[in-house]
């Protein structure tokens, strides 16, 4: 029932929706906020594969986002490497580092894995902060050129928004495909019971590392898109807090649900815009939302919507749940 066609349709609809949002909203001052939230969604989709399907927690994903951003920024700015090459290198660095970290780390479980990724994130953050000759240190690294592909310069905010929207759609499609493939089934098996899947011949470690690296690559894609949009980068954007924010996006949106990650990322990135009215109490509301959601809506927003949908259409309840 969940074939390629269906996914393709959903992704097409989603892309169409993303493309018309700016037209519905008219003014363009929030385009950058939207672009940023879609960038975050790219990371969240990858992290969701790791958390929701492989059942592994990462508290250091901001590091992969940052590694790609800094690599591309430094290569293209300091060493005048051509943009596409610099961006590819950035994404590649995230992937390779994830591979190196993933092999020993993913042998660990639960809290230990959380700690290892957290420690890794802190180390990378300090590295950004202290290697001043390379990264510009805490005050940041500027003068980065905006994205250019085959002579076309994404100069306006709206063109960049479209670009990120397309990339996100691609990432979502890829993830949906993956989930419904052999790999996806293996991952879900691992999530349900590692022992059982091992007995049935699944190479657990290999699959876990694969997803970990894939999610780091997604974060890397987001990183290079981010850095060539803002054209400036400072370590503050890649700290522990952002890693936590990413995990929150996934949980809030709904784990083991690709669309959930997108919803969660958009919700959490756009929410502060509305909370701004409350100025100082924003942070309290943020905390309260996390608590209340986890208590009352543990499957996240996407899970909640699915539930609501099923309640409204009781006759389709045979198709319920177990995706």
């Amino acid at each position: 029932m969940y074939g390629f066609k269906r996914d393709m349709l959903a992704v097409l609809g989603f892309t169409f929706f993303l493309l018309i949002i700016p037209r519905i909203l008219g003014n363009d001052y929030y385009i950058n906020t939207l672009t940023l939230s879609l960038t975050h969604a790219i990371i969240a989709v990858g992290l969701n594969l790791l958390m929701g399907y492989a059942g592994q927690v990462s508290l250091g994903h901001a590091a992969f986002y940052g590694l790609a951003a800094y690599t591309s920024a430094i290569l293209t700015t300091t060493y005048s490497v051509p943009l596409p090459l610099g961006m590819m290198s950035g994404i590649l660095v995230s992937g390779v580092v994830a591979l190196l970290i993933g092999i020993p780390t993913l042998k660990l479980k639960g809290h230990y894995l959380a700690m290892a990724t957290l420690g890794f994130g802190v180390i990378v953050y300090i590295f950004f902060n202290e290697t001043i000759e390379l990264t510009g240190g805490p005050s940041g690294f500027g003068g980065i050129s905006r994205l250019q592909v085959m002579g076309y310069r994404f100069a306006s905010d709206i063109s960049y928004y479209y670009l990120v929207a397309f990339v996100l759609a691609g990432v979502v499609l890829l993830s949906l495909n993956l989930i419904h493939s052999r790999i996806g089934r293996a991952l879900r098996a691992i999530h349900t019971s590692e022992t059982a899947s091992q007995i049935s011949g699944i190479d657990i470690a290999k699959y876990k590392v694969f997803v970990f690296v894939l999610s780091a690559l997604f974060a890397g894609v987001a990183g290079v898109l981010y850095v060539h949009n803002i054209a400036f980068v400072a370590p503050g954007s890649f700290g522990f807090n952002f890693s936590i924010e990413l995990v929150t996006m996934v949980v809030l949106g709904g784990m083991a649900n690709v669309w959930g990650a997108v919803i969660g990322a958009c919700f959490l990135s756009i929410l502060p815009e509305f909370l701004r009215v409350f100025e100082n109490i924003e942070i309290v509301l943020y905390g309260a939302i996390l608590i209340v959601f986890t208590i009352f809506l543990p499957e996240g927003i996407a899970g909640g919507i699915t539930k609501l949908f099923l309640m409204m259409k009781p006759k389709r309840s045979d198709a319920a749940g177990k995706e």
Binding site: V57, A114, V251, I283, V284, G287, L290, T294
Partner: peptide, 26 residues
């Protein structure tokens, strides 16, 4: 949230820490 998954428990305590920090700030 008794009996929730490990990851949800982590999120709840993160939420609590942000909440407490925010109230203290205010």
């Amino acid at each position: 949230v008794k009996g929730a998954s490990v990851i949800n428990l982590i999120i709840v305590t993160i939420g609590v820490s942000i909440f407490v920090r925010g109230l203290t700030m205010i």
